[in-house]
């Protein structure tokens, strides 16, 4: 747990959108996908996933419907709307610029942590 980073404010939304980029998922699958796609570095407090999903549903970034899970239980599936996809692209670009800038600024110290 120590090497996992606390999620930065607002970043959870982007990660969720990213997880949904390949197709509809239910909440539990989203949590696993987020974790997996960040190389198990980013850990979601799973409880906070749902408010985030509802908030994005309100904003029209995702939509949802009830369906059947792989083990045939009733589950709610989320998928990106067109607006959601657009938002994801913008945010991903912004994150890219941000992390690039951060890395450049912190280059002298990068790697020391590993030593």
């Amino acid at each position: 747990m120590s090497e996992s980073l606390n999620l930065m404010r607002g970043s959870l939304d982007v990660l969720i959108l990213g997880a949904l980029a390949d197709g509809p998922l239910h909440g539990y699958a989203i949590a696993k996908r987020v974790e997996h796609s960040s190389g198990d570095v980013l850990r979601v407090e799973e409880g906070s996933l749902y408010p985030a999903l509802y908030r994005m549903a309100k904003r029209g970034l995702v939509e949802s419907e009830w369906g059947r899970s792989e083990n045939n239980r009733r589950a709610r599936f989320y998928q990106l709307t067109d607006r959601g996809r657009q938002h994801l692209e913008n945010e991903a670009a912004a994150w890219g610029r941000f992390s690039e800038a951060m890395s450049r600024a912190l280059r002298p110290w990068l790697g020391r942590g590993r030593a």
């Binding site: 909440g27 539990y28 949590a31 799973e46 749902y50 899970s69 239980r73 009733r74 589950a75 709610r76």
Partner: peptide, 9 residues
């Protein structure tokens, strides 16, 4: 229902 499903999984 949604939370229950998540916890069960």
């Amino acid at each position: 229902a949604e939370i229950a499903f998540h916890l069960h999984m």
